[in-house]
Design a protein around this nucleic acid. Structure first.
Lengths: 197, 197
DNA sequence: TCGTGACGTTACAGACCGGTAACACCCTAG
DNA sequence: CTAGGGTGTTACCGGTCTGTAACGTCACGA
């Protein structure tokens, strides 16, 4: 009973969770430390006891978000054990769901847009996490028996990245509405050329 | 001789030009009014005599940038008069050049990311300009004799949008490096299915 | 019981932000 | 010469931002 309270996690965890949510919804520069601590039901001093600075908090949020996304990949494996092609289709479906449900794009990409300073500490983290994300998709494509796995993975990556940005510019009824058709068409097309690879 | 001085355009034009450049490089929330006016060689009062607010300046900058991009489309027509397919390939080439030369993405998309407030006055302008941009590409694809013109145009749009975002996250050596191959492959693929349309 | 550490509260520093007021200046048109 | 519009200068307002200092509180464990 002593740790069964979902409502009252440790302040650090509440801050991290709240900050992720608020950064996602309002952007990094669109939300201040005070707003985060208030929404997390704590105060500024406690935040600065757990995080060195706002930049540090940003980085920890990005890592936490990436970690959650990583859990999704494990779900692909458990739901379609061994069937890499089914996992790839699951990736497309999950991506499409995100496009439909979430008006804001990828936290890492958004952060890269907002933090334009080339030497910002978060930038190397963003690059690192995005590259890991790419590697996973490339591996999945390769294991699914696709010849030009890198090219398909990169194409799908750009397509999704573009769709998540497009949603923010013109909404879900814009070009991103066709994401599934595009992605599935690409997979079919690349599968067709598997024999040559 | 009275208006031949490039160095000394009217203050309003200098402000607009400088603001476009600085918003593009440092982001909208990353640059203040003081920095713009100083870089434009003028002062804050003069800015506020020509623009109602920073939001107004943002909108005028977006319109000006879109206008410049529009001039590019006219160049396609003059360089390849009547040859719509050549114009489409020119579009791909210009897009790839942007990816290589410019580390920051599309001003409109970046603005949409930064200005997360759903009722921000710039958002309807962004949507309007992006939709006009899409219409032009759809028309070009259709006039080039491609069957599923909308789908190709939307796919190319998302691909470019994604590439411009990806450059900001992982640099020019990431997935966006394959943009030309992807785009040209798509055009070939869609051309192949023209007979059915 | 005592003390130790995590947490909360208040206040504040210093900087930056968007935006305005008041006034001086200069060029040009009449 | 004069009037006026566009411009530059200075100072300022109120607000917000990140980050810190000092102090109070409370629970828990030795």
């Amino acid at each position: 009973m002593e740790d069964g309270t979902v409502e009252r996690a440790r302040p650090r965890d509440r801050i991290l969770e709240t900050a992720q949510d608020m950064f996602h919804k309002h952007g990094i520069k669109g939300v201040g430390i005070d707003a985060i601590t208030e929404a997390a039901g704590t105060n500024k001093m406690t935040l600065y006891r757990h995080f060195d600075s706002k930049d540090d908090l940003i980085i920890q949020c990005l890592r936490a978000t990436a970690c959650k996304a990583g859990a999704m990949w494990e779900k692909f494996e458990t739901e379609h054990p061994g069937d890499k092609l089914a996992q790839l289709h699951a990736w497309v479906r999950v991506a499409a769901d995100m496009l439909r449900a979430d008006g804001r794009g990828c936290d890492m990409a958004n952060a890269a847009v907002e933090l334009s300073e080339t030497d910002h500490p978060a930038r190397r983290v963003i690059k690192e996490l995005k590259e890991a994300q790419r590697d996973r998709l490339v591996t999945l494509c390769r294991d699914a028996g696709i010849g030009q796995a890198e090219l398909l993975a990169d194409t799908l990556s750009l397509l999704l990245e573009g769709a998540r940005v497009s949603v923010q510019s013109v909404g879900t009824e814009g070009p991103s509405a066709q994401f599934v058709r595009m992605a599935e068409g690409l997979i079919v097309s690349f599968r067709g050329s598997t024999a040559s690879g």
